[in-house]
Design a binder for these strands. Structure first.
Lengths: 249, 249
DNA sequence: CTCATGGTTCGACAATGCCGAACGAATCGT
DNA sequence: ACGATTCGTTCGGCATTGTCGAACCATGAG
């Protein structure tokens, strides 16, 4: 056995491809996308259907992700120590700031949202747990990037989300320096127009940054004339410090 | 190739076993649980780690689920038609009833929660999307069970969650009959003490039940002297009918 | 009505991954 | 402090396992 099991790796590639778009894919499309013969793919797909990781549309014969994955994903949240330890602090942060609170980790070049508390007194928000945020255009991402030992500033080019998004690698590096020295990150309408965010790093007992926590809300509530209200910054930093302390025990 | 690919099936079994408990498991434990040689498992685990489905604790060497699964699970939600079509209705239901709204599907003998709207004006609730509810002890489960062609009342024995849980198979069958004729299900403190729930079926364009929608809240708000307030029942049934109509288009 | 495209089946070949025993490290119990 | 377990990991031979490509039907478009 050389290094890694071929069929399992291929199965994972199929799942990732199915997850990459909202569309459901057929055998032929997958074969083209992965450069594998149709017959081979069919065998793996049959197995994935059997274990519930993939579902097949009875009408068209095309394939999509299965419900078992949803359950496995939520099981991951139970195991995740960072999340279980920080849930209460995120609730408190949301309550004190009266804005939505977020917790994220670095994962494959993106910020993976592992917890999300809605803004109090404001329903009609969709939950973002499990989704990706861009590292260069989010407060959480800047914090994680700034403290990542491998300093991987996501694969260029930096995609602009609004006209305020930092797309110049040099400017991003300067911004990350500021984040490092200051200890927290701001994001001024760089991901969504009209929304700003604040984030601070969470460290484990050895001092390495394992995640970030922050809030996000309308610019008119959190800032005046482009300057953040510092009370919100202290809320976020307090929460981050509390979780860090909690993880050290 | 007989029927299904061995290594992929084994990989899935590993993931399910890791998801079954909050604890992280070692190679030896997995080998015992699955009846496979340690060496074999190690190879599959190495691959699962490589694709991010599994993480290994650097300290203890034990394995736990990986972050990629969380992202795959949330991707499933994007693809799921029932969910995308019913989100708005669930929001409306939660708003009108001022209680938490839930949408679930039958999956491997459990109710899989695919959407969950918090109760308005009440933060500090943990999201339940992706978790399982028992079929025999939840309003959603009763609805789904009552209309399941394969009529699988979950594997006995029926586990009691409170002293009101229906644990007698005969009594459950009677209850399901009532649900069928009445068109909706009630659950009076059968899952959690002090909480009641109401649910109604969602059908696709062919008329088969593909899911259920309902609300859940404190018994003192939703009922008086053990009798549900019928206005809540109509809220739920209205929402279910609206989604059914929506799916038919 | 034809043709292209999509999902599925099949059988032969050999590459692939399974297995069991052996290794070194860590932990537990005494 | 020291054996005795128990753990995660490595390795190489064997045959089981999965890969491959061509052939098979359905479906839908032109």
């Amino acid at each position: 056995m050389g290094e890694t099991i071929q069929s399992v790796e291929r199965a994972a590639a199929i799942l990732r491809l199915l997850a990459s778009g909202p569309r459901q894919l057929g055998v032929a499309e997958l074969a083209r996308g992965l450069g594998l013969p149709k017959g081979t793919l069919h065998g793996i797909l049959r197995t994935l259907v059997h274990v519930g990781f993939v579902e097949q549309d009875p009408a068209t014969g095309k394939y999509r992700l299965g419900a078992t994955l949803l359950h496995l994903g939520s099981s991951y949240l139970d195991v995740n120590e960072l999340r279980t330890r920080s849930i209460n602090w995120a609730d408190a942060l949301a309550g004190r700031s009266r804005e939505s609170a977020w917790i994220g980790t670095l994962h494959e070049g993106h910020v993976l949202v592992i917890h999300h508390v809605f803004r109090p007194d404001d329903s009609m928000q969709t939950l973002q747990v499990g989704t990706y945020l861009p590292t260069h255009a989010s407060a959480l991402g800047k914090v994680l990037l700034a403290h990542d030992p491998y300093a991987e500033p996501a694969e260029p080019p930096l995609r602009p989300h609004t006209k305020h998004t930092i797309i110049d690698p040099g400017a991003l590096e300067e911004e990350l320096d500021r984040v490092r020295t200051r200890g927290w990150a701001a994001e001024m309408e760089e991901l969504v127009d009209g929304e700003v965010a604040i984030a601070a790093p969470i460290k484990d007992r050895r001092g390495v940054v394992v995640g970030a926590i922050g809030i996000r809300g309308a610019v008119e509530r959190l800032a005046t004339d482009g300057a953040l209200h510092m009370e919100y910054v202290s809320y976020v930093r307090d929460a981050a410090r509390a979780i860090t302390r909690d993880l050290a025990r």
